[in-house]
Amino acid sequence: MNEPDFPIKLESGAPMVRFAKVRKSYGELTVLDDLDFDVQKNEIVSIIGPSGSGKTTVLRMLMTLEQIDHGVIYVDGEPLTHMGKNGKLVRANNRYVRSMRSKIGMVFQHFNLFPHMTALQNCMEAPVQVLGMSKQEASDRSEELLQMVGLEDKIHQHPARLSGGQQQRVAIARALAMRPEILLFDEVTSALDPEVIGEVLGVIRQLAAEHNLTMIMVTHQMGFAREISDRVCFFYDGKIEEQGSPTKLFDNPENERTRQFLSAVLDAG
């Protein structure tokens, strides 16, 4: 497929992530409708919106878990979904996608830890198997990361022996072990019991404070989004309906739909 309207490479100073006219539909249902969306390097962006608005799809496409129908996604100036070939943009092959994917990590709603491996093994698996890191180095680094998320006493436990909050913290450590430049959080607290949400948010807060990672999160935790985000995007019907700084979006939403959505979730919360 040729995408004549899109450049093969973005000029320097380009954003860390760029969605250019990205379209995605499942049969009749349009999930993303010519979406344009940029995220700057080290920016922390929260995506909010009603369910079915396409917000999770944005993350899944960036992680290459879903194909896109039209448009191009760029990461760090290079196309992610496509690659340049003879001066044209063509669909990326597996090898190319794999090379691009190394810049991105993801934390899932349901953790998706490997149940047959301990917390430590979960973190070591990809560094050893994908990056070819030595076991010793991977183990040292994983231990460090597990310590950072407050689980130094759980490193040899299997996921089934850990609480939801602990599992999610392992999942964050596992994603960080790959040293991604972009980290995606997909409703990471939605599957958790209320009393353990805080410990997971604490870890993310700590990462945000360091501010050396581009973070995009889909969340229902409005208070948290407001606290740590540089920018909040309100998604509606496969489009960004409104975006801006947390104060602007939460305190002075311009859009009627944003107001309705916020008053609905804030009342419920």
């Binding site: 992680m63 794999r98 991105i104 990590g105 698996e125 994908v130 790959m178």
Partner: peptide, 9 residues
């Protein structure tokens, strides 16, 4: 999906 996100072949 986790395998893909971790880039395992």
């Amino acid at each position: 999906e986790a395998c893909k996100a971790l880039n395992l072949n």
